[in-house]
Design a binder for these strands. Structure first.
Lengths: 337, 337
DNA sequence: CGGAAAACTGGGAGCGCTTCCAGTTCCAGG
DNA sequence: CCTGGAACTGGAAGCGCTCCCAGTTTTCCG
């Protein structure tokens, strides 16, 4: 009697023995591969059940050379960029798509040097079957590593300066253009912009959309007032804008957080919104609905972004060659403009 | 010449051969274990460098029986609960602590049945070195599975009805009491509460704190108006409360989202805050600062919660027996109360 | 009813790394 | 110059699973 012994996980060999078949047959049953008679299949299934057997994923990974996991790496100098609810939504989408492919999600916040090194290891050691990369700054060494890695890599948003083969992005230029056009078509002519950091592709693209729309309407684009996508920098930028151009009547903020900040700065400056100054944001996060007044903004399908990234990665892992994707945006009109 | 051959990942054997030592020695160098002469160590290091060798984590995992990963599972019927920025902060903390222990983070959103089954697999198959479990509802089958799993498990917040051995929680009762006391000490006597779902421990604990404070002050607690922690249910609950008790002068909302909803409902009902009705929330998320008026709320150390969960898990994995932890909360006074 | 094709089966060789352990080498001390 | 022990070293046995392949059993026709 081996009572009290902390019963080891049972192995495939034990299953095979109990079922009176060879390990190969047992393995075939588990992966429901062909070439197994009905009788043996059932015997194995019974044994699996009796033993409460669960295959060891590590062993399987070693044998198949597939880890069964995909990584989502969020790069950035500061881990707090991850606090942006944006990423939570991306994760929800990606997680669902990976679940369909029976892959696990590894999350890597590559903020510290150490974190960055770990991602490099991951990339070079086949520690995952594929990687999704987000929020890369200009010159982020991760971009290069990823391109060199012999592993499927999907970019979420295009990194500045690179033109990756596989990516999913949102139509930032188009969305920003829509937002600006909305302001202009409402009769605003002195429309400024609070841009996001111009060393990110998102920041640049949204600024470009603003600029395009202004020029197309025969208006002079204002030089961008730059924030880092947070509420407080949005408020600061708005204050600066107000100081420099007291007469402006419209603002396009490159995201909702900064838009909310702008609303606050305008409130503090006693400039009623939208009567005096109209504001449009970008993202359509919860904050836009909650803001006072509710923020007109450009909706982007964030969960779909995550989902499509994961799907593309799964396709890549499956040996296909999917085409890059640019997801559409749409204007959501609320009270602020 | 093997030109053009997609150079396979190099293996430890190749490193050993190039360095002119046995595989064992090379392995020892990599794990910087003792019993390696200086000369050989350097030879191996040189070989590693020349080959760009990176150990295969899967093989290592199989040999050591350690996966090098910890899972964070967020349970819930609806994946969107994960959209709560709360989790993002937990992740930031957990991620940092795991990084220190050189563990990877696997994220499991156990919303669907399928997701739940995958978590069960994980728990039973040693697919991770340990698991952190969050947001469990009453009767969540995951709780039982986790307790039965022969794997380190740390709970984030105590699940209803269970009394797990290892957990990290926030002092929800104390925080809610503080919030309510703040309202009372400001002279409010007709203080109601918007509670969170009472089938969660958080919902219950915060209601209990409210109740305790009311009773302690000799006031009659109101029956809880229940929401599900979202802005809209908060607004609805506030409207219901207002309809039933038009004379109330204070509200404790079990979280900031619902607090923000309450503010909106009050605004729509034309009841000025805080003059007419004072509101206190719980969480101290970004929404509390952005709300109008800014929401007085109970700050909880969310990132620390994540960090401590991960640390506890690491200790457990390391064979230690850490003690459960309850993190303190503190009131943050803003304009709403 | 014989023979070839089709369907099964199980042995065994890995996957790449760790680790035990028997065997070597190297030094003091005697 | 020999001996015992400490410091090293490398062969070999796994870790648990997949999958090729050669061998065996069925099945199906002519």
């Amino acid at each position: 009697m081996t009572e009290g012994v902390p019963r080891r996980q049972s192995t495939l060999d034990e299953v095979a023995e109990l079922a009176g078949v060879s390990r190969s047959v047992a393995s075939r049953v588990l992966n429901n591969a062909p070439h197994v008679s009905r009788a043996k299949r059932e015997a194995v299934e019974r044994a699996v059940h009796r033993l409460g057997y669960v295959p060891n994923p590590t062993a399987r990974a070693l044998a198949t050379r597939q880890t069964g996991a995909a990584a989502l790496v969020v790069s950035g100098e500061d881990p707090s960029i991850f606090a942006d609810p944006f990423f939570a939504q991306v994760i929800v989408g990606a997680s669902a798509a990976l679940e369909d492919a029976d892959l696990h999600l590894m999350l890597c916040l590559a903020a510290s040097d150490r974190g960055r090194r770990r991602v490099e290891q991951l990339l070079r050691s086949k520690g995952a079957d594929g990687v999704m990369l987000m929020a890369l700054r200009e010159d982020d060494p991760l971009s290069r590593m990823a391109e060199e890695a012999e592993m499927p890599v999907v970019f979420g948003g295009r990194p500045v300066g690179l033109d990756p083969r596989w990516y999913v992005d949102v139509d930032n230029v188009g969305g920003a253009r829509q937002a600006t056009e909305h302001l202009i078509s409402a009769g605003r002519t002195r429309v400024a912009t609070i841009a996001g950091r111009l060393d990110t592709e998102v920041g640049r693209a949204r600024y470009r959309g603003y600029r395009d729309a202004m020029l197309a309407a025969g208006l002079d684009p204002y030089p961008p007032e730059v924030g880092d996508f947070t509420e407080s920098t949005g408020a600061a930028a708005m204050a600066a804008l107000l100081a420099r151009h007291p007469d402006l009547d419209g603002v396009f903020a490159a995201n909702d957080n900064m838009g909310a900040g702008a609303l606050r700065a305008l409130r503090e400056a006693g400039r009623p919104v939208p009567r005096d100054v109209a504001v449009v944001g970008f993202d359509d996060l919860a904050v836009a609905r909650i803001a006072d007044p509710p923020l007109t903004t450009v909706h982007q399908p964030i969960e779909a972004l995550g989902r499509e990234m994961a799907r593309m990665l799964v396709a890549l892992i499956g040996g296909q060659d999917p085409t890059p994707l640019i997801l559409p945006t749409r204007l959501v009109t609320r009270a602020s403009a």
